[in-house]
Write a protein that binds this DNA or RNA. Structure first.
Lengths: 123, 123
DNA sequence: TTATATGCAAAGTCTTTGCTCCACG
DNA sequence: CGTGGAGCAAAGACTTTGCATATAA
């Protein structure tokens, strides 16, 4: 456990959103300027493989990360604003297990992203 | 509608799996060698924006495509073999609508991917 | 014709890696 | 002290783009 990794872990723990590598890099260098982007990528990859981190992809080419220690949740992506809303639905979790099982699989992970627009006056 | 686009569309219609750009390019040039990879990318992007195509990302860096005209379904990704299994679950579809609505959103699209390993003797 | 699409190659993004040096244990 | 990590810069993988040419309508 090196200083750099500690800092990157800290950045991810305290991050409110879902930062990408560049953002992690920016925040990390604010704490200790002796961190390179390469190290961010290496650390993020390592943490991901260790299950410490989750990798999110919303289809815009870059990966975003979040602390996996936090309670599990899925994401709703606001198409208009780009906002990411987190949610949990126990019913959904159960249903996914059921579906996987029905297909002859043991569920190891899942990714579920809803894409929507805000309801205003309508409905 | 140019010849190239027609061929790319044809390749996607007849494709059994979920080809990436390179694979589309290979199949397309087999039909007519006068198609460039750039055209594949441009066409695929165009079709995606027109809603003719769906773009899938399984987190391995490249996008894969499938004909959107086909019946909607979700995917289960076999972690060990890389196989992609398609499935539909009406209950899941309804549940997603419900969740989005509860969060104050109108569901426009969703992406749901299960990642699992085959059940053998276990269970 | 006349706007639009294609090819080619160069450029862009995001991410990974080789190599040397430094640091943790 | 030695093994593994960090920095830097170069390389990679995938995708996009500028420009001149070709083509559909």
């Amino acid at each position: 456990m090196t200083g750099q990794r500690r800092i990157i872990a800290q950045v991810l723990e305290t991050a409110k959103g879902h930062p990408d590598a560049e953002e992690i890099y920016t925040e990390a260098t604010a704490i200790d300027s002796a961190i390179s982007l390469a190290t961010v990528y290496r650390t993020v990859k390592l943490f991901f493989e260790l299950g410490i981190l989750e990798r999110l992809e919303f289809g815009d080419g870059r990966a975003r990360y979040e602390d996996a220690e936090r309670d599990h949740h899925d994401h709703l992506f606001d198409i208009e604003t780009g906002a990411v809303i987190e949610f949990v639905d126990p019913e959904l979790e159960v249903l996914q297990e059921k579906i996987a099982h029905r297909l002859g699989y043991r569920l190891m992970a899942h990714k579920m992203e809803l894409f929507g627009v805000k309801l205003d006056k309508e409905d």
